Computed example of a mutant assay.
Amino acid sequence: MTTHSAKNLRSPLSEARGLGSSKYGTEHWWHQRLTAIALVPLTIWFVIAVISHLGADHAQFTAWLKGSPLSAILLILTAGVTFHHAQGGMQVVIEDYVHVEWQKLAGIIAVKFLCYALAAACIFAVLKISFGA
């Protein structure tokens, strides 16, 4: 005797294929690994850039950023990748440790909005300095 209805001739395994966390979880896992890999050279560059500007005043720093489009691009990439990676990591923590569904959803939405807002603010600041507005 089978447990599925006579109208459905598919096996339980064929019904389950393509469902569940294996699709999204694998994609999320890859995003976390790729952003982590991207952050390695970006963080090294960022630390070197900060150390090289120790003691510089605001005018010297803005002059450096205005005169170096590559530095502006790397700062924008660092901010974007950092907040994307942080959002993904915090989402996993919320999914794992928050067990009330509406609180889980609210937390994930709040984290996404916060990370996107902070990334946008960083990118805006870099662009504003770079273009001298």
Rank of each mutant, 00 (worst) to 15 (best):
residue 128 K to V: 11
residue 55 G to N: 09
residue 50 V to Q: 00
residue 91 Q to V: 12
residue 59 A to W: 02
residue 63 A to P: 04
residue 46 F to D: 00
residue 73 I to R: 10
residue 109 I to V: 15
residue 113 F to G: 04
residue 108 I to P: 01
residue 76 I to S: 04
residue 114 L to P: 02
residue 114 L to K: 10
residue 118 L to R: 00
residue 48 I to Q: 01
residue 103 Q to A: 09
residue 116 Y to I: 12
residue 101 E to N: 03
residue 93 V to G: 05
residue 111 V to W: 09
residue 120 A to D: 09
residue 60 Q to G: 14
residue 73 I to D: 07
residue 94 I to L: 13
residue 81 V to P: 07
residue 95 E to K: 12
residue 62 T to E: 11
residue 104 K to V: 02
residue 107 G to V: 05
residue 96 D to C: 02
residue 132 G to H: 00
residue 45 W to V: 01
residue 118 L to P: 00
residue 42 L to D: 06
residue 108 I to F: 00
residue 132 G to V: 03
residue 57 D to I: 05
residue 101 E to W: 00
residue 60 Q to D: 14
residue 123 I to P: 04
residue 119 A to R: 08
residue 71 S to F: 11
residue 98 V to N: 01
residue 117 A to S: 14
residue 111 V to L: 09
residue 44 I to L: 02
residue 124 F to L: 12
residue 49 A to R: 00
residue 87 Q to R: 14
residue 103 Q to H: 06
residue 119 A to N: 11
residue 109 I to F: 11
residue 61 F to M: 07
residue 106 A to P: 07
residue 97 Y to Q: 06
residue 82 T to A: 14
residue 93 V to H: 04
residue 68 S to H: 15
residue 37 I to Y: 05
residue 46 F to A: 10
residue 133 A to T: 12
residue 113 F to D: 11
residue 52 S to M: 08
residue 119 A to V: 08
residue 106 A to M: 09
residue 48 I to N: 03
residue 38 A to V: 07
residue 63 A to D: 09
residue 79 A to S: 06
residue 97 Y to A: 09
residue 109 I to K: 14
residue 130 S to E: 08
residue 53 H to P: 02
residue 54 L to N: 08
residue 82 T to S: 15
residue 54 L to V: 15
residue 81 V to K: 04
residue 104 K to D: 03
residue 85 H to W: 07
residue 45 W to Q: 01
residue 128 K to E: 09
residue 84 H to D: 11
residue 57 D to C: 11
residue 48 I to R: 01
residue 125 A to M: 10
residue 70 L to H: 00
residue 48 I to A: 04
residue 55 G to D: 04
residue 46 F to M: 04
residue 127 L to T: 06
residue 59 A to E: 13
residue 64 W to E: 10
residue 123 I to M: 15
residue 113 F to T: 13
residue 34 L to H: 08
